[in-house]
Amino acid sequence: MGKKLVMAQKRGETRALCLGVTMVVCAVIAYYILGTTVLPLYQRSVWTQESTCHLIETSIWDQDELGGKKVPQYPCLWVNVSAVGGWAVLYHTEDTRDRNQQCSYIPGSLDNYQLARADVEKVRARFHEHHVFHCFSTTRENGSSVLYQRLHGPQALLFSLFWPTFLLTGGLLIIAMVKLNRSLSILAAQK
């Protein structure tokens, strides 16, 4: 009976050790992937200066004149604010500025025009409710544009590093507990 117990204990220790090592290896791979994708975006982000924006005006651009015909496009919200000592155009995120520099906010679903228009109206109403809000500006440009929300800020970096850190800590704890269990078993067997 004692021999079967020792063999079962060794199998359990081996499995727990394999689990801990696998968790550590997965955490190292996740750190490598995050270090090559998310970390460079965070380091290259120039939108680091937090400031206060005051709403000046908002307008919604619905349609475009193209060859004498009105072509419906997605509704585009344009927000003008005063920040960093002058007026500036507010963009929702870095991606919004890259997609269309004439729009401050682009709705999520562009397939259904009515839903997109309702989404833009809702965002416009929120801006009119809160005339003063925090925004992010850059020191490299002339200050004619600001961001409402950073995609690659410190909170996003911490959020993406949470699970790999959890995996690494859990794996190291499992390995340490297996080693401690073996040491205590050896000490108990010697006495």
Rank of each mutant, 00 (worst) to 15 (best):
G68F: 02
A88S: 13
L34E: 12
L77P: 10
A83R: 04
V71D: 03
P40C: 02
V38G: 00
L77K: 03
Y91E: 05
I33V: 15
R99W: 10
V79P: 00
W87N: 04
D64G: 00
E57A: 13
V38N: 03
G67R: 11
I33H: 09
A30H: 07
V89D: 06
N80I: 11
G108F: 13
L110A: 10
V89N: 07
V81N: 02
T93W: 00
N80C: 09
K70M: 11
G108W: 13
I56E: 06
D95C: 06
G108V: 08
P75C: 05
L34Y: 03
Q49I: 03
L90Y: 09
V81C: 05
Y32K: 14
R97N: 07
T58N: 02
T93S: 15
T36N: 03
P75Y: 01
A30C: 13
L77Q: 01
E65F: 13
T48I: 08
K70Q: 13
V46P: 01
C76T: 13
Y91G: 05
E57M: 01
W47Q: 06
G85Q: 12
E65Q: 10
A30K: 02
L34T: 09
T58P: 04
L66A: 14
W47V: 09
L66G: 09
V38A: 06
T52F: 10
I33D: 13
H92S: 07
T58W: 09
D98P: 00
S109T: 11
A88Q: 04
